[in-house]
Amino acid sequence: MSQQSFDYATEAFEFIGRLDGLPSAETVIEEMARSFTLFGFENFIITGLPSPQERFDQVVLLKKWPKAWFEIYSKQDYVRVDPVIRLCRNTVQPFEWSEAPFDRETEPRAAEVMDRATDFRMKDGFCLPIHGINGYEACLSMSGVDLDLSSRTKPALHLMAMYAFERARQLLNPLPYRGAELLTPRERETLMWAAAGKSAADTGEILGITERTVTAHIVSSCQKLGAANKTQAVARAMQYKLIRI
């Protein structure tokens, strides 16, 4: 083993060791930025893969992305056509962006997202798909212009990415079940009134339904959100931008 690949290994193990003590998503971002820079990566994102009903910004866990690119990517809904995201859903193996297939002729939007990314120094990338035990699908995708991406660095990056994802997941606690199980309009409404400080009785009066029905909507929201009580359900619904106040 060469001296250099030994250093990658050391960096990877030390990075993993440091993650445990990090208290917040912000500190995980700083730590990832510091370590991934050593391999030439400038940008990265950890995100769930959205169901058809979900918006991209609802499923992102953490990111170091140019602000303007995030806005364009969200506004254009590129997540639906991004070949990197598509390959993520269909493989468990890490891959380079250049390995994510698309047809420039028949898929102009796929070509557009890859081309426009290069305007933001996201020329090449490396993507690690995550397929969780409950069907939770996510990925860590990182990119830059001058990457040190070889058969010697990839194993270290692969391992670092898996642990970075896990730390982000622990800290941000994404919803395990999503998609079809998002909140109904009535559930959102009752949570919004709860967030505004109304009791179940008040909410019932406002909406013209019984207090019992209000409570039933809240209980069902708690189940869907994996929340222990109404307060946590409101907090999680806001965290995932399912309600706004």
Partner: peptide, 12 residues
């Protein structure tokens, strides 16, 4: 273990 199992263990 195959690497793709790692997050599954962690999520368990």
């Amino acid at each position: 273990v195959e690497m793709w199992w790692l997050p599954r263990w962690q999520q368990a």
